[in-house]
Write a protein that binds this DNA or RNA. Structure first.
Length: 265
DNA sequence: AAGAGTAGCAACCGCAGGGCG
DNA sequence: ACGCCCTGCGGTTGCTACTCT
């Protein structure tokens, strides 16, 4: 039996978000919350968007406390250390960097940091033997290790998935396994979007969210690595996290030029 | 000045896995 | 126990802006 699509793609708008759509989504979520159902949200809010698209837009762009660009050297080091240790678990890495999204970190890594890291311009501060081993293979995550027979069930709150409880199997998958094989390239249709050009500025003061540092420690224990992540991620400690109210967030809307519609290959 | 090449990044996709009836 | 629904994740695409020739 095939999987039901998350939405009717014929009737949803795709492509870049317009400032108007952003405003609608922001005001709706701020007023009513997500209601625990992103699928139903766009209809309630009056948006012709897929629920997944709304969620993504909110999480990566509209949500308060989001920082864009301007990665500090300290953040670079944290990202590299964690990538060195756990590979491309962007959500986990993002949970260590308040105000950063996994998408942002992923993009930053792919476009800039990977090159700097491979060129040796950034060094991780981890001194464990395993980290040293993986440091020699900076572009690859650690290889999969055998799944132990008896693993405890662990609350996954610190994995930025508060609703979930990780079974040993899913924890293994989460930490080690590649999720899926590569799919063939696809030329996706892009929707046309409005041509409005608006610049808006949103100022948000924030209170830092305390992120526990147990995440990687647990992960490391499970996969049998002796990693000193705690020591390598100074900004992730609860005390320092709460002591650093990260700066005011400036959100500038981009211009949204019209784009052509492309046909799926 | 114009075209080609490259970088940056927002957004999309499909899948895995947990929740819940 | 089972199957559907929904969320979250990581990989990828493709458009825009920038740089180079």
């Amino acid at each position: 039996m095939g999987r039901a699509p998350c939405c009717d793609k014929r009737n949803v708008k795709r492509g870049p978000w317009s400032p108007e759509e952003d405003a609608i989504l922001r005001s709706y979520v701020e007023m009513y919350g997500t209601g625990g159902n992103w699928i139903a949200l766009p209809q309630k809010a009056g948006l012709k968007r897929c629920g997944k698209s709304c969620r993504l837009r909110w999480l990566n762009y509209l949500r308060p406390n989001i920082k864009h660009g301007g990665f500090t050297e300290e953040e670079d080091t944290i990202i590299c250390s964690l990538y060195n240790s756990i590979g491309s678990r962007w959500s986990i890495i993002a949970s260590k960097l308040p105000g950063r999204t996994d998408n942002d970190i992923k993009n930053y890594w792919n476009t800039k940091l990977k090159k700097k890291f491979t060129a040796g311009l950034i060094t991780t501060t981890s001194t464990s033997s395993s980290s040293r081993i993986y440091h020699s293979l900076p572009t690859s995550p650690p290889p999969p290790l055998p799944l132990p027979d008896h693993l405890p069930t662990i609350k996954a709150e610190s994995f930025a998935m508060p609703r979930r409880t990780c079974s040993p199997k899913s924890m293994h998958s989460l930490l080690i396994c590649r999720r899926r094989p590569k799919r063939p390239p696809l030329l996706r249709p892009r929707s046309q979007s409005t041509t409005t050009t608006t610049t808006a500025t949103t100022t948000t003061t924030t209170t830092a969210t305390t992120t526990t540092t147990t995440t990687t420690t647990i992960a490391v224990a499970i996969i049998g690595l002796s990693m000193e992540t705690e020591a390598t991620t100074p900004s992730s400690s609860p005390s320092s996290a709460s002591a650093v109210p990260w700066p005011v967030t400036l959100t500038a809307f981009r211009a949204y030029p019209a784009r052509g519609v492309r046909i799926r290959r």
